[in-house]
Nucleic acid binder design. Structure first.
Lengths: 363, 363
DNA sequence: TCCTACACTGTGTGCGAACACAGATTGAAT
DNA sequence: ATTCAATCTGTGTTCGCACACAGTGTAGGA
């Protein structure tokens, strides 16, 4: 059980004071090259690893972190990343991290911008911002602000093509489409048709939805079957109107009698199934996303065959922990952090749900 | 942004010294009841939460943790929990946690006992022991030792019926059998037979294997099909002998021509498939456990249809983090901590494998 | 009355690192 | 040789808490 090496030990061994060692460690200059070399040599010899505990105590600093996410009223999904965020916060607040959370309407770019301003112009400006780049133009602007102000940025749920982001935490959209293809293909006949159903506003701007569709199509292409031609897409912006959605679906069924597979590209599967409440869906197989209570009911019934879990809680958790790793532990942070695409059936659902519930207990 | 409350603040507000507050907090006695009440009142008013950072720095104590796991030569599986353990250790060693790791042969109860003795009689006896209760009798003895010596115990991978264990981290064996049933039942005809294959020594003592079989059988029972009667089991202790295993399997196939589903109850699926290398398995569907490289090859080929991931790395990680939660953060620890039963197919495997690699960045 | 025992409370030091500031050394310019 | 600035190095204080120890007060016995 070897004793831990302290700055003092290094100082003694190198024949200098602790202040000098400190200057070397933090590259604060004012140390002659010879001395610096000697100190570094000793550090390597003794395999020095700083005591983070003592370090954070002495720093006595605040690390304000801005959070910018959709509110839960827009979409129950977004309560989950927030939950993970809170959990992570419990772990790292001792290190001085302070959250400044702002929520915006999921379909309201102006609110996004307004909240972003609030964040940036806070009395204690954040050292990092954690946000969901839902709106492309506004997000590019925010990234630019981060760049000029020297603020680190962590992207969650949706990625952006910006090399200056500290990291992205979320799913691999393309591959989730591939996986959906795999799950839908089980027991599929050669003439069956697959429907890709986008229930969202402004789907034209939603790159991740396109990626999912591409993944699904590529999966069937690789199967080399005639199924290739039979993937159709339907974008529905009026998904909140139950009657309209039902009519639209029924028309789709009529026009495509071989339709037997539905892939809902986000967490809103339950909207379709609510709308089709009375319609017999026995011969349909549906795959959707996320373990929302509304979806779970249909999964238990068998109306949804599989749900793909995007680990929303872990997304929030990881996102903040990455900031901690960067600023406190000074560990390198991986740019792309894909969370597993969990295949959820009634038989294994409880464990994923339990994991989410356990987090509530902590808070 | 409210300032954090310190002991000093409480002392001032309560009109006492910090020493007294400290005595109240740690219930070290020698404080008059009136003063103690007043201090506690103030603590509640100001909502005091101790600064763990400063606390652990001042404690300057060691927390020796004993670790007792199977070695990797016995079974490559066990390298994974150990990996998670090491990663967790990186996170908590600053708090004074020191590991004392001992490995034993997976089929060697005497070694288990010997190593347990080494742990218990170490110069700095552990405050907690983390172990896999592979051997029932020996584990009961170890638990008794922990009880009398006041050592906390964390069980990993296999549970034991002992209320004094701090917690169990692992899978729900029964439910993993149910899940296997579900996965095997996909596309199954009414006459198909299912083989439960135990590749282990002393399977009679392995409760978790029995639980898995029970889960599988219950699943088919609940299906209410004729499939109920067609689940057969085969225990194989000589699984390391490739030729013997192949012969045994071929005989099973001959005796049970309707056999089309194989459930390997642990991570050793690859043993069967290695043995059956030349035999055509096109009409078979196999489900096994764990993403060992050997299994992954067969999964990619399609020879294994699904692997159930028991999250072995996370098991090790969580086990140690629980000890940290208990001793450092003083959080309540949940007795049963079931990890998700991930359904792994080639299309989502990479993310689970990646997570194992990345884990140190995670928590 | 004094002393002792005991209950109670305050003070001081250390944990390891960060940083401000004072002090020392050097070299160049006067 | 002296001054001055620039460069380099050491010391001391701080962070919040834990704990040893010193100090005060009170009651009871001799």
């Amino acid at each position: 059980m070897e004793k831990r090496i302290r700055i003092k030990d290094i100082a003694e061994r190198a024949g200098v004071s602790t202040g000098t060692v400190d200057r070397v460690i933090h590259q604060r200059g004012n140390v002659s090259p010879e001395v610096a070399d000697r100190v570094m040599q000793v550090m390597r010899e003794l395999n020095y690893e700083p005591n983070i505990i003592a370090s954070t105590l002495a720093y006595n600093r605040k690390l304000p972190v801005g959070v910018l996410l959709p509110d839960y009223d827009s979409d129950p999904y977004w309560a989950l990343p927030n939950l993970g965020l809170k959990r992570a916060f419990q772990n790292v607040r001792h290190y001085g991290i302070v959250l400044d959370t702002h929520l915006f309407g999921l379909f309201d770019p102006a609110a996004f911008l307004a909240k972003a301003h609030e964040l940036l112009d806070a009395p204690e400006p954040p050292v990092a911002i954690l946000f969901a780049p839902i709106f492309l133009r506004e997000s590019i602007w925010l990234m630019e602000q981060c760049r000029t102000r020297g603020i680190a940025s962590v992207l969650i749920n949706t990625d952006m093509d910006d090399p200056d982001a500290l990291c992205y935490v979320g799913q691999d959209s393309y591959q989730s489409g591939v996986l959906a293809g795999k799950l839908l293909s089980i027991g599929m006949g050669p003439d069956d048709q697959v429907l890709v159903l986008n229930l969202d506003k402004e789907t034209t701007n939603a790159k991740h939805l396109w990626d999912k569709e591409r993944g699904l199509r590529d999966y069937f292409l690789r199967l080399k079957g005639p199924a290739v031609a039979s993937v159709i897409r339907y974008d529905c912006e009026f998904f909140e109107d139950q009657d309209a959605l039902r009519d639209a679906m029924l028309q789709l069924f009529r026009e495509n009698p071989q339709l037997s597979r539905i892939f809902v590209t986000n967490s809103r599967s339950y909207f379709v199934l609510d709308a089709l409440n009375r319609v017999s869906l026995r011969h349909f197989r549906t795959v959707g996303f996320d373990l929302l209570p509304q979806n779970m009911t249909y999964l238990e019934q068998g109306t949804i065959s599989f749900l793909i879990n995007q680990n929303p809680v872990e997304q929030g958790y990881l996102a903040l922990m990455n900031i901690a790793n960067h600023f406190i532990y000074k560990k390198p942070v991986k740019r792309m952090q894909y969370l597993p695409l969990d295949i959820v059936v009634p038989e294994n659902a409880r464990y994923y749900l339990q994991r989410e519930k356990d987090l509530e207990l902590v808070y």
